[in-house]
Amino acid sequence: MPNNDLDAAPSVQDLITAFPLPTLVIGRDEKIERLNAAAGTLLGENLVGRHFTTALRHPALVDAVERCLRDHTPREVSYQVVGGANDAFYDVHLQPVAASALLLLSFQNATDLAHAEKMRRDFVANVSHELRTPLTALMGFIETLRSSARDDAKARDRFLGIMSDEAERMNRLVGKLLSLSRVEADQHVRPTTELDLRVVLRRAQENLAQLARDGRVDVRLDSGQAPLQVIGDADQLLQVFTNLLENAIKYGGNDRTVDIITRKSAHDPVLRGPAMEIVIADQGPGIDPIHLPRLTERFYRVDGHRSRELGGTGLGLAIVKHILNRHRGRLKIASQPGKGAQFIVVLPLDA
Score class of each variant (00 low, 15 high):
residue 150 R to A: 06
residue 339 K to H: 13
residue 274 P to C: 10
residue 225 Q to V: 09
residue 5 D to I: 01
residue 104 L to S: 06
residue 215 G to H: 07
residue 29 D to N: 15
residue 200 V to M: 04
residue 232 G to K: 03
residue 335 S to Q: 05
residue 66 E to K: 14
residue 286 G to M: 08
residue 319 I to Q: 12
residue 3 N to W: 10
residue 186 D to G: 00
residue 246 E to P: 03
residue 2 P to Q: 13
residue 251 Y to C: 05
residue 89 F to V: 09
residue 339 K to F: 08
residue 12 V to P: 04
residue 217 V to H: 00
residue 3 N to D: 15
residue 328 R to C: 06
residue 175 G to V: 03
residue 150 R to V: 05
residue 302 V to K: 11
residue 110 A to C: 09
residue 288 D to C: 11
residue 142 I to G: 13
residue 252 G to E: 14
residue 124 V to L: 12
residue 158 R to Q: 09
residue 247 N to M: 03
residue 349 L to F: 02
residue 290 I to T: 14
residue 91 D to P: 02
residue 18 A to E: 11
residue 47 L to F: 09
residue 259 D to M: 07
residue 180 L to G: 10
residue 157 D to N: 08
residue 177 L to K: 12
residue 97 V to K: 10
residue 230 V to W: 04
residue 292 L to H: 03
residue 285 P to R: 05
residue 178 L to D: 15
residue 12 V to Y: 13
residue 299 F to A: 02
residue 7 D to E: 12
residue 284 G to F: 12
residue 201 L to F: 05
residue 50 R to E: 08
residue 269 P to Q: 05
residue 65 V to C: 12
residue 37 A to E: 09
residue 48 V to C: 11
residue 199 V to L: 13
residue 298 R to N: 14
residue 136 T to H: 04
residue 125 A to C: 00
residue 103 L to P: 02
residue 117 E to F: 02
residue 219 V to L: 11
residue 97 V to E: 14
residue 255 D to W: 01
residue 60 A to L: 10
residue 108 Q to M: 14
residue 168 E to F: 08
residue 132 R to Y: 06
residue 238 L to E: 03
residue 89 F to Q: 09
residue 256 R to T: 14
residue 36 N to G: 11
residue 287 I to D: 07
residue 245 L to W: 07
residue 136 T to K: 01
residue 334 A to V: 11
residue 86 N to D: 15
residue 77 V to G: 13
residue 47 L to G: 04
residue 55 A to Y: 03
residue 4 N to F: 10
residue 335 S to M: 06
residue 227 P to L: 01
residue 314 G to R: 13
residue 61 L to S: 12
residue 314 G to T: 09
residue 294 R to K: 13
residue 303 D to G: 06
residue 263 R to W: 04
residue 159 F to D: 00
residue 253 G to Q: 07
residue 288 D to I: 11
residue 138 L to E: 00
residue 154 K to R: 13
residue 219 V to W: 01
residue 211 L to V: 02
residue 341 A to Y: 02
residue 252 G to D: 15
residue 181 S to T: 09
residue 39 A to H: 01
residue 131 L to C: 06
residue 252 G to A: 01
residue 177 L to E: 15
residue 87 D to C: 10
residue 107 F to N: 07
residue 209 A to C: 04
residue 214 D to V: 00
residue 302 V to W: 11
residue 155 A to H: 00
residue 54 T to C: 05
residue 107 F to Q: 08
residue 112 D to I: 06
residue 132 R to N: 04
residue 32 I to Y: 01
residue 323 I to P: 10
